[in-house]
Design a protein around this nucleic acid. Structure first.
Length: 692
DNA sequence: GTTAGGG
DNA sequence: CCCTAAC
């Protein structure tokens, strides 16, 4: 624990993308896939197929009576899914979502009740159909998706292509009895498949002999933590997370899971996404840096260095020093966004480190179960106007820790525990999101809040938030939520915290993005008056967000953004120098010379807050380079050759002059040191002459 | 805090 | 544009 922030040369890095409160085994981060977040539609597909597959399994089991219902090792799921698994094992058909069914899938509630009651196939099919429809509807209505697509269109138009999402699929082989095939096929064609074919040209569902070979999103498998079952890992290769490497091919299907461009896309995405205008203002940025730095100077001995202790004034982060904690934070961030590149397994949805519910499902009652793509929350509206929820588990944000290789397992456990406890230290509240917006009025009824309406089924979300926080940086609950990779809600009226960055840092350890959906409308060219809000909105993948003090710029401590997600201080937005700026720079340098960048700044760019003297120095550097290369090699906005000539001339002059000056200074120093007998006025004379 | 230079 | 060493 105490070594978390120290500098062991040999370390083992553990990345935890989240914990499930219920004991569902999870893969090591290194084996989990994190691709670009999937679209909700894929969830819908998977759910529908789960239904079908589950149905198939169930029917098989029934048809073969109890002969096959003996073993249940490793399957921690009751009832029907277990039998499905068993059947799969016997048949050596290792497909499927049987495991997915058990835990948190949209099919769950249906099968736990309806299937167990052995109602008619038709009913199940109808249910499946209904669910398909619901899925599609909710997908279409999903505002997060809208945002996502919007950003996609605006930010990564060339690189991030959803058409490719099916490239990461693997085949699922589902055995379906002959007598059900027809009806299932009908369902597929008329319901799910139809929808999918309409929206996803790449989607395929074909029949082969007695099998259905379904290509559906692997993401569903691997993104669903519910699928991780350490006991059954071998049985469900496609269920992700159990693969030691980042790619695999299965059964000769050549379904390679390549991360190739997706990773790039992701990084690119993250980069763009994290580009923020928050720190565009140098003064603010400096202030932030100072704040952070000063905070970091406070010494603390261990991981808690990077945690926060509460005082009467509020929450105060105790940062040992910038390097230590910053690197900790940064490595966390790096682990998020860089490791993702290599170890993609896992849920992108988790990548924002959000608390998430493994599943939030409705009571297995009658009625319709709408799958909420915003939060995975399932809500059931029964006939008596009750709205029933069941939240099975929550996950906490990704946690990144380091321990020495020599650490014991016990210490590792303790470290993880302490880190978790630190995150959860303040206790938690649950927030409710409706239409991506926080429902703040606790006294309103569900009906009044619009939650009781069926139309809101896919608009509901949950989030966890620290109970001690006034502000609401919180995280959506829910697993299948595209929202998690995109945005969260930060209501404009989010209360202001007094402790500023202190709280921000505190929050950072606890929470993930809390981004207003609306802010996804930001484009990289817009300038925000609220840098922090901007930042938060832009960097949805940052592990950390900062409650903003209205329009005051604070700090965001990305532990890792996507961002995705982000550094302690965001990289500034690139601001190409205009010709006039170049001219001003050249003029100033001609006069002042190189090496006096502060003066250059004050003289020529005093009012350009976004230009630091380092910027000017860098620009001069590139100008010199540009002037030296041929015009064909130059890129960006062309600089008039006249200016470049002046740059070269000035550069040559000042190089010479500076060298001469330095030589003279050295000469003078030497003289002073070696010839003590020289009278001061003589020395001054010499200096004057040399410096001419 | 500035400057210089590598990335 | 960032980072860091050196001053």
């Amino acid at each position: 624990m105490s070594n978390v922030c120290s500098c062991y040369m040999k370390r083992l890095d553990y990345g935890f993308r989240g914990f499930q409160v219920p004991p569902t085994a999870r893969r090591p981060r290194s084996t989990r896939w994190r691709g670009p977040s999937k679209k909700p539609a894929e969830v819908g597909q998977a759910c529908a197929f789960e239904l079908l597959a589950s149905l198939a399994g169930r029917l098989l089991q029934e048809s073969e009576s109890s002969a096959s219902s003996n073993a249940s090792e490793g399957n921690n799921h009751p009832a029907f899914s277990q039998s499905v698994l068993e059947k799969e094992r016997q048949d050596e058909v290792k497909p499927l979502m049987a495991k997915g069914i058990h835990n948190g899938s949209c099919a769950e509630c249906t099968f736990k009740t309806e299937m167990e009651s052995q109602k008619s196939i038709q009913k199940c099919i109808e249910q499946a159909e209904t669910d398909c429809v619901l899925e599609c509807v909710s997908v279409n209505d999903n505002s997060c998706l809208d945002c996502w697509e919007k950003v996609e269109a605006e930010v990564k138009p060339k690189r991030f292509k959803w058409e490719n999402k099916f490239e990461r699929h693997c085949n699922r082989l589902v055995e379906i009895p002959e007598d059900v095939r027809e009806s299932c096929d009908g369902v597929i064609k008329n319901g799910f498949r139809k929808e999918q074919e309409a929206s996803n040209p790449g989607f395929k569902a074909s029949t082969l002999n007695n099998n259905f070979i379904l290509k559906d999103p692997l993401d569903k498998c691997i993104n669903s933590p519910a699928l991780f079952d350490s006991n059954n890992n071998v049985k469900s290769p496609f269920c992700g997370g159990l693969f030691p490497s980042a790619s695999f091919s299965r059964h000769g299907n050549d379904n390679k899971l390549g991360f190739r461009d997706d990773d790039e896309n992701f990084l690119q995405w993250n980069r763009v996404w994290t580009k923020s205008k928050a720190f565009r203002h140098p003064q603010r940025r400096r202030r932030i840096r100072k704040l952070v730095t000063s905070k970091c100077r406070k010494v603390a001995p261990n991981l808690k260095d990077c945690e926060h202790s509460r005082t009467d004034e509020g929450v105060k982060p105790l940062y040992r020093k910038r390097k230590t904690c910053y690197s900790f934070v940064r490595s966390w961030h790096d682990s998020l966004f860089k490791r993702r590149k290599y170890f993609g397994w896992g849920s992108v949805k988790n990548s924002d480190g959000g608390f998430s519910s493994d599943s939030v499902s409705n009571s297995p009652d009658k009625g319709m179960g709408g799958d909420n793509h915003n939060s995975s929350a399932k809500m059931h509206v029964s006939k008596d106007s009750h709205v029933k929820f069941s939240v099975k588990s929550f996950r906490i944000p990704e946690l990144y820790i380091e321990v020495p290789k020599t650490a014991t397992v016990g210490s590792l456990k303790r470290t993880v525990k302490e880190a978790i406890m630190a995150m959860l230290g303040g206790g938690l509240h649950v927030g409710v999101l409706l239409h991506g917006k926080k429902v703040r009025d606790d006294k309103r009824t569900l009906r009044q809040s619009g939650i009781s309406c069926e139309e809101s089924l896919d608009k509901l979300g949950f989030m966890l938030e620290p109970s001690s926080m006034q502000a609401s940086p919180s995280v959506c609950v829910g697993d299948a939520s595209p929202c998690k990779t995109s945005q969260r809600v930060r209501s404009p009226e989010t209360p202001v915290l007094d402790s500023g960055i202190t709280n921000a840092l505190h929050d950072s350890s606890l929470l993930t993005n809390n981004v207003n959906l609306v802010e996804s409308n930001h484009d990289s060219n817009s300038f925000s008056t609220d840098p922090i809000a901007d930042k938060i909105a832009t960097d949805s993948r940052a592990l950390v967000t900062v409650p903003t003090r209205s329009t005051e710029a604070l700090a965001v401590v990305p532990v890792g953004q996507k961002t995705r997600h982000s550094e302690l201080v965001q990289r500034r937005t690139r601001r190409p120098f205009s010709v006039s700026e170049v001219e001003a720079l050249v003029e100033a340098v001609e006069e002042l010379g190189t090496g006096r960048w502060r003066d250059v700044k004050l003289q020529a760019f005093e009012n350009a807050d976004y230009r630091t003297y380092v910027d000017l120095k860098d620009k001069w550097k590139t100008l010199v380079h540009t002037a030296k290369i041929s015009s064909q090699q130059r890129r960006g906005q062309p600089v008039p050759q006249v200016l470049l000539d002046r740059v070269l001339a000035s550069h040559a002059y000042w190089s010479h002059h500076q060298a001469k000056h330095h030589a003279k200074q050295h000469q003078i120093g030497t003289m002073k040191n070696t010839v003590d007998c020289i009278q001061p006025h003589v020395m001054n004379d010499v200096e004057r002459k040399l410096c001419c």
